[in-house]
Design a protein around this nucleic acid. Structure first.
Lengths: 220, 220
DNA sequence: GGTAGAATACCTACTGGACGGTATGCGATT
DNA sequence: AATCGCATACCGTCCAGTAGGTATTCTACC
């Protein structure tokens, strides 16, 4: 597909710079000039890889899916895996510029319409799949709808993350995540399952590293 | 202060139009031209009342505080009041353009920094006050921190609202709110108190109407 | 293994348009 | 008659995108 290694490198540089600028300024306020400058490439190079500002933003959003796709279960317990996923995501929100930019663009629903619906859906689907496993294992409260719970959890995580960012620059994100799980789990899982779950973060680092295979090309 | 009734009317028209446009496009993508057009006023009129685009946005954000300030407890039970407040807010998010625009601007943390922190804080403080009352009444789980719970609740509501907007244009907002309370309350209040609380929406309409006294003037 | 030439990858300079904000003037209200 | 409230016309700036040329890398053939 992409022929030269050099091309891949500049493409990645552009994507990273774009993610950073989109994260800091938002889509509309971000300027191509700042992205160019930060990536250390020229306008011609950028527009060779990405046909427009919007196309570039879509490629950044796609990075979120790439991150999620690298996630692997961390426990036999689906609920525990869900909690671990939440913490890994929280770390990515602090450390991984691609994820940060992607999330900001996803939250800004203005300019586009379809793509960030897909992004939300991906998270919700992942959570629902884990919750369905938990239900089948008899861990959840009877009558609890995994889809509804998945919606609540993804929404809550989204909002927790957002308020943490606005209020403290995400400095208290981990604490807020712990608070969320502490208060939410009793309404989801039965007491016998609750006893086997660690609500606090387990592994200090956690999460997939930088995605090895970058976003699929949306170019040309 | 404001001398003529006509002036107040145009000011309100501008504010309303601005709230709508900010809600639909976001701060940066919103143009003054569209606000002018929708308000049916000219540039001179607008800039007489608001010195800049940012000042106009701040006035819109202030509408959120005005809405919250008109809220009055709806029940003897603080927790029930909190739930009712959530539903009233959900209705305002659907019906009240000022609240919608204000929320969108609050969520976009890019251009400003201070004001929307205040907006978040107001919600968090309101929730914390109610939760402290609930704690003093012995309704909460012992050891539960009202401030932490308030943070979780405001964050969760923020995110629920946001995902509902992106995914369904807020059509399922009420359902998602009900889901949230159903799953969250067991982690907050003790069983004996839980029995006295209605998690579903109680009054069909609900919430303060359009704020009678508009936002305090930031113009001069 | 050297070279023509064809893609591929990138650079520079420019453009057209839109946008926020201002200067100035004029009727209405007090 | 003086302030208030608003209208019109204009300005400087900045930005996404493009046109057209240049460098780099790959392929093919000798």
């Amino acid at each position: 597909m992409a022929r030269q290694a050099r091309a891949l490198a500049t493409r990645q540089a552009v994507l990273l710079a774009a993610a950073e600028v989109f994260d800091e300024r938002g889509y509309a306020a971000a300027t191509m000039s700042e992205i160019l400058e930060r990536a250390g490439v020229t306008k011609g190079a950028l527009y060779f890889h990405f046909g427009s500002k919007e196309e570039l933003a879509l490629a950044v959003i796609e990075g979120q899916g790439a991150w999620l796709a690298t996630w692997r279960p961390t426990s036999d317990s689906p609920v525990q895996t869900l909690i671990d996923l939440g913490y890994a995501f929280a770390h990515a929100l602090v450390d991984d510029p691609m994820v940060r930019g992607s999330i900001r663009l996803t939250i800004e629903h203005g300019s586009f319409t379809q793509p960030q619906i897909a992004a939300y859906q991906r998270w919700s689907d992942a959570a629902r799949a884990l919750l369905e496993q938990a239900r089948d294992a008899g861990d959840l409260h009877p009558g609890l709808d995994p889809a509804a719970a998945a919606g609540v959890i993804t929404g809550a995580v989204t909002g927790i993350q957002l308020s943490s960012q606005v209020l403290t620059g995400r400095r208290d994100l981990l604490q807020r995540m712990a608070d969320l799980w502490t208060m939410l789990l009793p309404g989801l899982v039965q007491p016998h399952a609750l006893a086997r779950i660690s609500v606090a973060e387990r592994a200090p680092g956690g999460g997939p590293g930088q995605a090895p295979t970058p976003a699929a090309g949306t170019g040309d």
